[in-house]
């Protein structure tokens, strides 16, 4: 495993830890999109189906279990925890899952490598992950008061796939040369969606101002 991949995974892990920390410490999920969190549960469930079928490494299995467990835990907090759920921005989190899930599934049926159950779901998970942040970004645009933890959570979540892009370039040149269009293009689109957010996040950090996204 190269440094970019490890850094990407750690950034991803850190973003989740940060979100759980925010929820547990402040008993609040204000500014967090339940739609995005539910999409992540779908992403991980469809991608990690191979968890009990193919063994890669202890690291790999552990991370999959952590991502599955924490994503479901976050959704549970937001939907069912008696204090946390009351802080959820129900009225502003208006993006429909359906408009992302359906097109991604149809695209996975059309564009894939092998027409097998596992492969279609794996492809679907990559397409869906690339756009899963959209409800969260829409919610942030509507929020007048984005707290630091939420801003940093989204930043780390975006940075993770960006680091994977470097990992893919590195692997392309150091391991056998094979083009992997589906993950590469999905990852590129995923990172590109964050571009605007990155710009405003870094600017607010440099100027020590509160993060605010233009509507």
């Amino acid at each position: 495993m190269n440094a970019f991949r490890l850094a990407g995974d750690m950034t991803h892990l850190l973003s989740i830890i940060l979100l759980l920390l925010k929820i547990r410490a402040t008993k609040s999920c204000a500014g967090i999109s339940l739609k995005t969190q539910e999409l992540y549960v779908i992403v991980f469930m469809s991608r990690y189906l191979d968890l009990f079928r193919t063994y890669y490494s202890l690291y790999n299995s552990l991370m999959k279990i952590i991502f599955l467990g924490t994503s479901m835990c976050i959704v549970w907090y937001m939907r069912s925890h008696k204090v946390v759920r009351q802080t959820y921005n129900n009225d502003e989190d208006t993006f429909r899952h359906f408009f992302l899930v359906l097109p991604c599934f149809v695209l996975a049926l059309l564009v894939h490598r092998n027409f097998t159950f596992i492969e279609i779901l794996w492809t679907f998970s990559l397409y869906l992950e690339s756009v899963a942040i959209l409800p969260q970004l829409v919610l942030l645009q509507k929020s007048s008061n984005i707290d630091n933890l939420t801003g940093t959570y989204v930043f780390l979540l975006g940075a993770y796939r960006g680091l994977y892009l470097f990992n893919w370039v590195y692997r392309f040149f150091t391991e056998n040369h094979r083009v992997r269009w589906i993950p590469w293009l999905s990852g590129l689109i995923q990172t590109a969606i964050y571009t605007d957010f990155f710009y405003y996040y870094i600017r607010s950090w440099k100027n020590r101002e509160k993060l605010k996204l233009p509507a």
Binding site: T54, Y56, S57, R113, W122, Y164, N167, R171, R180
Partner: peptide, 10 residues
Amino acid sequence: NPTHKPKDEL
């Protein structure tokens, strides 16, 4: 001939 890489990423 390049082989298909296993899905060892997350």
